[in-house]
Simulated scan of single mutants.
Amino acid sequence: MYKSFYSLAREPFSKDMRKEDAFLSISYQEAWNGLEYLQKSKGIGIVIGDPGAGKTFTLRTFKDSLNPSLYHVVYFPLSTGGVMDFYRGLAYGLGEEPKFRKVDLFRQIQQGIQRMDQERKVTPVFILDEMHMAKDAFLQDLAILFNFHMDSSNPFILILAGLPHLKTRLNLNHHRPLAQRIIMRYQIQSLSKDDVYTYIEHHLKLAGSKMPIFTVSALEAIALRSQGWPRVINKLTINCLLYGSQLKKEQIDEEIVRMAAEESGL
């Protein structure tokens, strides 16, 4: 096992990593600044990024930072289910028994949000993921569903997350009512080459590494192969550690990276 071979106390690049363990890249910190602004202002925000950019991790750490006595988080990834399944999921998330008709579901969700805000003094936070897959009719419905008191108040936080072409879709004329109400927009970028080096060293240090495991040329090869996307960096680096331990390599060089990349299909 590579952990014992490289004297690591735990697996690096773990999916259950906490906010305090996050690598503070410029993109991550800017995304957090936007989310904190949305938290204070309330309303609708959008977080987009390419696959593997770190959207889900950013949203998860934001969710975990919220005081559960002040915020009620409903996370819902858009799946292959129908639109009505989605609305029922929102109702369940608010602790409601879903109605059957769409008009009744709309009213039920809005009333549930208002009760949570006014009676319990808790702000509902909706994180809707994979929204680039949403049908046009659903995006148009959101502008109506999250309209309170003739758009004079926002007793909620709504975060729409997805791939970059979500932004392009929202720029279309028929989505203007929703787009005009978005108060925070952020697109997560890939890591720079220098950040890739620091990112890998940061996570290896968290895992207990005392000595450099990757040569400079290996880090450069990982940066080139991954193009700076964290998910790809994680996968490629773990494969390098596996190959390196199997071959009894005290330091991982660019040849190990090449082998690991071919294994990963990169």
Rank of each mutant, 00 (worst) to 15 (best):
K19D: 14
E201K: 15
V47R: 06
E263Y: 07
D104M: 10
P164N: 06
H72E: 02
I213L: 05
R185L: 03
C240D: 02
P164I: 08
I252V: 14
L94A: 06
I183C: 13
E262C: 02
N173F: 09
V73P: 06
N33D: 09
K40F: 04
C240I: 04
L172Y: 14
G244F: 04
Y2M: 01
F5N: 07
R10K: 15
F156E: 02
I200T: 08
S245K: 11
I127L: 04
V122Y: 03
M211Y: 14
A221G: 05
L224D: 15
T123V: 13
K55W: 00
A179K: 14
D136V: 09
A161Q: 10
L35T: 02
Q227K: 15
T168A: 14
Y92N: 12
L178C: 07
T237W: 05
F5K: 06
P98T: 01
V103D: 13
G54F: 08
S245V: 06
G208C: 04
Y243E: 12
D136K: 15
D129L: 06
M1H: 11
L38Q: 03
Y243H: 12
D104E: 15
N154F: 02
H174G: 03
M116I: 00
F156W: 03
F86Q: 02
D136M: 12
K235I: 08
R181K: 11
K135D: 14
H132V: 06
D50Y: 14
R115A: 01
K55M: 02
D117N: 13
L206N: 05
K42F: 02
F5E: 04
M259R: 13
P77Q: 06
I44K: 02
K205S: 11
S79P: 03
G34D: 04
K102R: 14
G112Q: 13
L70Q: 15
H132K: 12
E130K: 14
L94G: 03
L78Q: 11
C240N: 05
Y71F: 14
L35Q: 05
A207M: 07
N171F: 01
K15I: 12
H72R: 08
P51T: 10
R225I: 09
E220A: 10
N234A: 08
Y243R: 13
R185D: 02
D141R: 06
R185G: 04
E250N: 05
D16Q: 08
D194I: 01
K102D: 00
G43C: 07
L178I: 06
K15S: 15
I222D: 08
A161H: 11
V73Q: 08
K63E: 09
V47S: 06
Y199H: 07
N234P: 03
E96Q: 07
F62M: 09
T61K: 12
Y92E: 06
Q114V: 05
R169K: 15
E255R: 15
E30Y: 08
M116V: 01
L160N: 05
W32D: 13
G52M: 09
A31S: 10
E30D: 13
Q246K: 15
S226W: 13
H202Q: 08
E254S: 11
V83I: 10
L59T: 09
G112W: 07
F86E: 05
Y71V: 04
R115C: 00
L224Q: 14
G93T: 00
K42Y: 03
L178P: 01
I127A: 01
S226M: 14
E130P: 09
D117C: 05
R101C: 01
I252C: 11
K135A: 12
M116F: 00
I182F: 07
F5G: 03
R225A: 13
H175T: 12
M259N: 02
